[in-house]
Each structure stands twice: as C-alpha cells, then as structure tokens.
Amino acid sequence: MTTGEKMKDADTIFRELKPAALDELAGDAHARRRDGDLARAMHAPAARRRRARRPVLLVAGVAAAACAAAGTVVLANGGEPASRPPAAGREAVDARTFLLASATAAAKAPAATGRYWYNRQRTSGEVGGYRTVVVGKGPDARKVKKKISYRASIETPGEMWLARDQGKGRKISGPEKLVFPTAGDEAGWRKDGSPRLVSGSNEKRIWEGPSRPSIGNDEVSFKELAALPTDAGRLQAVLRDRYARDLKDSENPFTGTFTVYLWETARDLLAGPITPGTKSALFKVLAGQPGIRMAGRTTDRLGRPGMAVTVKEAPDGGANATESRLVISAKTADLLEFGVWESGYGAGVTTYEKMGWVGALGARL
C-alpha cells in the first residue's frame, strides 16, 4: 500500500500515530472548550495572536510518487521541485486544538445512509523535472531526458458510486486535461513543440461491476464500516490490529510506521461512508498524535476555505523531503483536499468536490 497507489482515487478510495492518551471525559470537555477557543482565535485580530509552538515534525515512511494522481508524467531523479505546497496563513491554533474542534463538528452532523456512496473528485499531477524524448530515427533512435522549464498540471476528473453488499457500482475517469498556471508556462510548452504530456486517451473511461471499500490492505463491507467504533480508544485499537496484520502481509506488506498508516487511513476514511461518531473519534485519535503540524488557513483548488494539517518526512535524511497535507473545512470538518509534495518529483493533489449518499446508480449530489 503505497502513497502512489492510493493517489489513484478513481480506482481506490480507502486505504497513524502514537496511542491516543486522551481521557475520554476530559477529552470531550476539552474538545467542547477548544471549539470555542478555535472560533475566537480564528477571528481575533492578528496583533493579538500569539505564535503557536510547533510540534516536532515526524520523520516517518510516507512514500510519495510524482504525479501519481495522473499516473502519466515522466520524471527523473534529481529534477527540480515542480512546486511547493500552497502557502497557508499562520494561525495561533495548533493542530491538536483544530482536530479536537473538528471532532466536535463531525459529531454534530446528521446520520445518513443510502444505496450508493457517491464521490466526485479531481486529481491533479504536476509536470516537473524532465520528460522523455526520442532522438534520431530507425535503429539509431534513442530516448533521452529533456529538462522542462515550464509548469503544467495534468487534471483528471473522476466519479465513483460504491454499492452496498457488493452490488454493481460504477467508476468514471477522464478525460485528462493539461492545465497551465500562467500564460508564460503555456507559451513555454508551445515553444517546446507542444509535447503530449498525458499518456492515456483523452476520452472518458467507464467501469461497472461489484466493488467494495477497503481499510489498508483489506476490503471491508459497508456493514463493517458502519460498525467501526465511535470511541477514540477503541477505534485506535481496531486500526492498530489492522496495521499489525498489514505489516505481515506476504504479498503487499506495509513498511511504514503506525503513524504513517493512521495518517493515510484517516485520509481514506474521511472520504468514505463512515458514521459521524466514527469520524469524530478519528479526529480525536489524530489529535493525540505527534508529528502533525498546523499549516493554517488555506483554500483548495476550487477556492473553498479550509484549514491545512500536515505531516513531513525525510526518508534519506532530507534530500527528498515529503509533505502530505489534509485540507479540512473548519465549519463542517469535511475533507476538502489531500496532497503530496516531494522534492524533485512534483505534486499530486486530490480535490474532493462532492461526497455523500445517493439512492440510485448515476445519481449525483
């Protein structure tokens, strides 16, 4: 279970951190109190805000792949960073405070159900570093790496209907679209000969058949998702058990820490049909963990306001630092966006446009 595999959300939606040392009664009271603290801090004049003490960044095993969302861009080791994570405003609110406030907001959401879980999203993989070009003709032809001096992203829309009880679902992906951040970047691409940077067809691809959500390496039923604990301690115990099993998986063993496993699993669960109680418990588990920092206010690629929480790692001592980022609505605790940035490899971002229950295959929110 790699980050690159999980960024391909048109095919998989569902796929971590120190045991939560939160006393449940104290934690619930703290969450309610911090909810008000968060609201006041976010609306307080900048001059009155105190600089937050940043937690120690976690060095763990988050594995990122260049433009994995699109799965099409050819990049080479040592390429220039294609982008940085979008800048977010500094806040006096720390990650724990925000996540506990999110737990309170999530618990207030009305419970709902339906025949299909619907998810509409847009993945974006940024072009950067180098592209492969063919030099020469016939037997003398050879492939070489050509440095790209302009910026572009490959955007792919996708929709998914997951049916209960392994009924027939549907997945739609594409068409891919090349997007440039500035007119100058597009001019640079045209000067480069307007190379085809998307690998697949420009057509919409549709798949229908039975499908199930998953947690880690295991597929699960909707009934199992609905039965996930609403108590933070018990939910963490369930996820630790799954982590222990995935470590021993003979075909696809997970090689990262529990921290990474929980972070990635949280991202997938937040995009899926879990109950408000489980969602609230998940935020509480995350709130008790080290290695998560608050990046502050930001907007997703649709312009929606949210708060960004991040985890960083440097697997080789810093040469290829990776940051993964969750953008969460401060009002509703809904997941808006997930992104991975890795030095020398560009960016992969999934923006969740709509998700929720619908009553019929093909119905949209």
Rank of each mutant, 00 (worst) to 15 (best):
T265H: 02
L228K: 09
T230F: 09
A232G: 07
R205K: 14
P253C: 08
S250N: 09
N217G: 10
K223P: 06
E219P: 07
G216S: 02
I206N: 01
T255F: 05
S214P: 00
F258Q: 09
P229E: 09
K223S: 15
V220A: 02
A237L: 10
R242S: 07
L235C: 08
T259Q: 13
D218A: 13
R240E: 11
R205Q: 15
A244V: 10
L228S: 09
D231E: 11
R242T: 11
Y261F: 15
G216V: 06
E219C: 04
S221F: 01
D218W: 14
A232W: 08
I215E: 06
D246Q: 03
V260G: 10
L262D: 10
W263A: 05
L225R: 01
P210H: 05
G216E: 00
L225G: 00
R205M: 07
L235W: 11
D218S: 09
E219S: 12
E208K: 08
D249K: 00
L262V: 07
S214M: 11
G216R: 01
P213F: 11
L262H: 06
L228C: 06
A227L: 10
W207I: 15
N252R: 14
P229A: 05
S211A: 15
W207T: 15
P210L: 02
P253F: 05
R234N: 08
A237Y: 08
F222W: 04
V220Q: 01
L235S: 03
S250V: 08
L247V: 09
D249S: 05
V260I: 09
G233S: 09
A244D: 14
F254W: 10
F258T: 04
G233K: 11
P213Y: 07
S214W: 03
A237W: 15
Y243T: 00
K223H: 10
S221C: 04
W207D: 14
T265V: 15
I215F: 00
S221A: 06
Y261D: 14
R242E: 15
D218E: 15
A244E: 15
R240A: 03
S211R: 05
A232I: 00
G209N: 02
V260W: 02
L247G: 00
Y261P: 02
R205S: 12
A237C: 02
G209R: 00
P210A: 14
E251R: 15
S214E: 11
Y261A: 10
S250R: 09
E219W: 06
D241I: 03
A226G: 12
G209C: 04
I215L: 09
Y261W: 13
N217F: 05
G209K: 01
P253W: 09
F258I: 05
I206F: 02
A232V: 01
T255A: 14
K248M: 09
L247K: 10
G233D: 04
D231T: 10
V238D: 11
P210I: 05
W263K: 02
L235D: 04
